[in-house]
């Protein structure tokens, strides 16, 4: 954060589905190496925004620059430089741990010794080396989520987008998941994470609170609490979310 190098720049992003405005003039900057939280109730437009930045969804209008590439014309270059973990678990249940890692590594262009070394590295980081030949379907949810995260990091992207990565997992797994997030952030990877757990907001360097497709607040957790005269992020969020039409 010292360098304040901008890695994601979004200017007046609008996304409409027919008449419905999912993202209403979003403007924000994300700096290299920070953990940037996207908070909001279900349906606030977090997933839409994250999918647009990842090149999975076409924006309606606005200027979007991710890792130095244009989200309209350079999607494949963006994709080569980012990792993405969907809120829906999306590894192959009928493949083993190792087969899943190898497959996605191969798709990202790794092969041979480099791929093999990277698989071993990820397996040992995850402490799953002895389970590498187990089918994904036999793993507990928490393990699956950590594995998804590692697979999204296999090509060492500069930004990782995590869409509600801790949905449905127990508090202990959530904590170890956030340890993984802090670890990659400390190595210089920018982390863009959506969540609706307010305690997780405290782990972010800066957070954005989205209500009805708009950004209602954007600052560090400490500053937000000061501004809204609240004792926790939960209070800040409730204060802002009350204004929502859909709540």
């Amino acid at each position: 954060m010292e360098s304040k190098e901008i890695i994601i720049e979004v200017d007046n992003l609008v996304k409409k589905f027919g008449q419905f405005v999912a993202n209403d003039n979003l403007t924000f900057k994300v700096y290299k190496g920070e953990i940037f939280g996207f908070l909001g109730a279900n349906g606030a437009g977090k997933t839409t925004a994250i999918r647009i930045m990842s090149g999975l969804l076409e924006p309606t209008s606005g200027k979007i620059n991710v890792a130095g590439f244009n989200a309209y014309t350079q999607r494949d270059l963006i994709k080569a430089n980012i990792g993405y973990m969907s809120q829906k678990f999306s590894l192959y249940d009928d493949l083993t741990v190792k087969e899943n890692i190898r497959f996605f590594g191969g798709i990202y262009g790794l092969y041979g010794k480099v791929l093999k070394a990277r698989i071993d590295e990820l397996l040992s980081d995850l402490k799953m080396t002895e389970f590498k030949n187990d089918l994904i379907s036999s793993l507990p949810l928490g393990w699956k989520q950590r594995l998804s995260f590692s697979v999204a990091m296999i090509h060492k992207p500069v930004i990782i987008f995590l869409d509600e990565p801790t949905g449905g997992v127990d508090p202990i797994t959530r904590r170890s998941f956030w340890e993984m997030i802090h670890q990659v952030a400390s190595q210089g990877t920018t982390v863009f994470v959506t969540t609706h757990y307010m305690d997780e907001a405290e782990y972010c360097d800066r957070v954005t609170i989205m209500v009805d497709g708009r950004i209602e607040a954007l600052d560090s957790p400490a500053n937000l609490k000061k501004t809204f005269n609240a004792s926790s992020m939960d209070e800040v969020f409730v204060m802002l979310a009350r204004k929502a039409k859909s709540a």
Partner: peptide, 14 residues
Amino acid sequence: EIGTIEQINVTPIK
């Protein structure tokens, strides 16, 4: 249906 295609679509594969 199972959503794995999204994990492929987010890669630079042609």
